[in-house]
Design a protein around this nucleic acid. Sequence first.
RNA 1: GCGGGCGUGAUGGAAUGGUAGACAUACCAGACUUAAAAUCUGUUGGGGCCUCGCCCCGUGUGGGUUCGAGUCCCACCGCCCGCACCA
Length: 854
Amino acid sequence: MSKIRISSHMPTYSPSEIEAHWQKAWDEADVFKARRSADKPKYYVLEMFPYPSGRIHMGHVRNYTMGDVIARYKLATGHNVLHPMGWDAFGMPAENAAMAIGGHPKTWTYDNIADMRGQMKPLGLSIDWSREFATCDPEYYGQQQSLFLDFLEAGLVYRKNAQVNWDPVDMTVLANEQVIDGKGWRSGAEVERRELTQWFFKISDMAGELKSALDGLDNWPAKVRLMQENWIGESRGIDIPFVRTDGAGTIRCYSTRPDTMRGASFIAVSPDHPVAKALEADNPDLAAFIDECRKMDTTEAAMEKAEKKGIDTGLRVKHPVYDGVELPVWIGNFVLMDYGTGAVFGCPAHDQRDLDFARKYGLPVRNAFHMPGNPVEVEAEVLVPAKTETVVYIDHFAGITETTSQHGIDATIDYFEAHELGVGQTQYRLRDWGLSRQRYWGCPIPVVHCDDCGVVSEKKENLPVELPDDVTFDVPGNPLDRHPTWRDTSCPSCGKQAKRETDTMDTFVDSSWYFARFTAPRADTPTIKEDAEYWMNVDQYIGGIEHAILHLLYSRFFARAMEITGHLPKSAVEPFDALFTQGMVTHEIYQTRDAKGRPVYHLPDDVTDGKLSDGTEVEIIPSAKMSKSKKNVVDPLGIIASYGADTARWFVLSDSPPERDVEWTASGAEAAYKHLARVWNICDRISAMDTDASGTGDDDLLRAMHKTINDVTLGVESFGFNAAIAKLYGFTATLQKSKASHAAQREAIMTLAQLMAPMTPHLAEDIWAHQGGEGLVTTAPWPVADEKMLVSDTVTLPIQINGKRRGELTVAADLDKAEVEKQALATQAVQKALDGGTPKKVIVVPGRIVNVVI
RNA sequence: GCGGGCGUGAUGGAAUGGUAGACAUACCAGACUUAAAAUCUGUUGGGGCCUCGCCCCGUGUGGGUUCGAGUCCCACCGCCCGCACCA
């Protein structure tokens, strides 16, 4: 191997040698092994674990580097750090690969894990690899099955019939997100609605708790808390039974706007409502309509476009407060059976959907209120003012007149409850979590179906219920369903022939408790009390905003369910103390067009100065998330090979705030490399100095150093990595130009190495070793800024005249305000501006600024 | 439609209500070199007087609060994200 030498006496910064060497040193010293001990506080830092696609990408590099900075910083500040890594290894891609290229999902997955581990290790992450696991390890999913059985016993899981999206070609249930324009995302087949018996987690029981507990998550982004709040969707309303005129009981309607009761002109029930189902048998018109509704696409996009349709059932109900008023009962295709009571009352004057419906079917429109001073009846446009706005109620039964809608609602609920006309109720949008998937590559649901005993839990001593290896994917559907021997078993209760449940669990289940498993990854129970109590909660969780709702909500549910079943302490029901959502890594897109004008994309490696190697100019499309289809990807392995892991780590942290997207640029990466080489060269220069060498400016250098310690520490603690790096650039420039003594410069470079160590650990170790540092920089205590070195004897205050900077004044730092004012007024700039007059006011902010108002 | 966020040089971005543009990129100039690369040094928001230091303007637009606003408040414009037949 030939090396380019910059000059005869100066060796080159060679990351490939340095990085391999120090990774080996860390391994040998076993410095990242998480240990429990009483003498130190613990710190658990976790990045969302990856799906083993087989290749790491820059997004991984950024995510894990951020976590690594925190982990290494906490290690240096005297914590027992838990920083684990694992694999979210079940899921469709493995089955799809098996179908497309043959082979077995298991082989594909474990090969990918081995590849990705191999790609990740060169990053030099401070991970305790002894705790690694994959969710497809039987040891893991067996414990998950054990949890499932405990949840079942505690009433946290149940089975029910549910409408699902069924792909007739792939023969599986699809999640709503997997249905695109009414077709299966993979097969392209028309998706059918089917009623299947499915397993559900009772997450809706905890809706109120999951919502109210969001208030305590102070260290979560407000945005994520808000998204969860909206998803849970709490609304306060009332359940009103409408009495049928035919004497056959009541129809209960849920409403959040009971104050608009005066405007009620019809009630509408869902096609799946018991009332509709009862009428269906004797009324062919209704039956036809209901049938049409059932065929309707259930996807959200289709629902949005669908026309609002209805049919009059002929039934009538009494208005609960206005005697003699009767309302017709319609079936409406827009009424959802599983929200509220499956029935609503329509108030066309104050609801757009109801107005559309009323206009279409000639139903009356009546105002319940109007705006103050503007008593106009609703015609073409609905009247829906904000609940905080004051409106004038017309003929309101509770006697209210001019007030806000919010007060109108509250007063109406009180009135209804007092007169026993209805019951105030809090309703949630959150539905139970359907976890059954008709797939092979997932965690088997550990129950058995017995003709005599029904659904029977598998015995815990028989866990794990392992996936059989001898399966094929040459025909669509779930191979477990047609497996000759795996499926047939004996009933754990009566011993008779029975069949295993062939559905597997949604992969979101796997990721809903892995963080708890990391505290005791080899235990033969899901968790171990002492370990969970010691390590939980995750002190800092880091991941993408795309998991803001489902993964985090499911994990919060699981933590509560695990607490109920005795697997987690009470203190861990909110498992993530702090959450950080990092931005994406983006890159420009390079595009040309083929003969037919279709876009052709080019890899960044193939483009130099906006041209391809043959000289063709490319069109540059602004930065977007790295994606294989647009070819705007940079392979981390390539970057590590040419510049080293430290450069990749330094760059992804330096250019943008961590919560925002960072644009990968070749020039930026090169600049990062050059800077690291510069630091290395400074170290080399200092090493070459005479150890007795004296110099000038020691105090200035050391003051700058302590300032940098302070700034970088604050930066790392507040996720201000980019700002911390800017300070490190500044200090490096100061050190480079310094003429200070060898002792001062050595102290400066060693401190610089320590401050850089969380970001560029290999380079930092190398400098530390060159300067004769004791042990590893990784385990050396974090430097502490000397307060005395942070304050200088004099300060330079800007002088403003009427808020505009007009000069400056250098004074002793401890000079009192009156004297500062006196000196400021004496400056030339102020004297000139005053022109012999006197100032109206002088504001002196000590250590900050002087403002003279004229 | 509802909810939230953002808007600063050519670019990515700094700035507890207190000197706007830190740091980096890019560009330009200089040193070194036969030359280039690398390295090092320096300039760069706009305009004006050009007396070489000072003056005016400048953080999407318009208003407000304040001694002082990129930062706080109101309205508008633009972009981004989440949710949405939710009664």
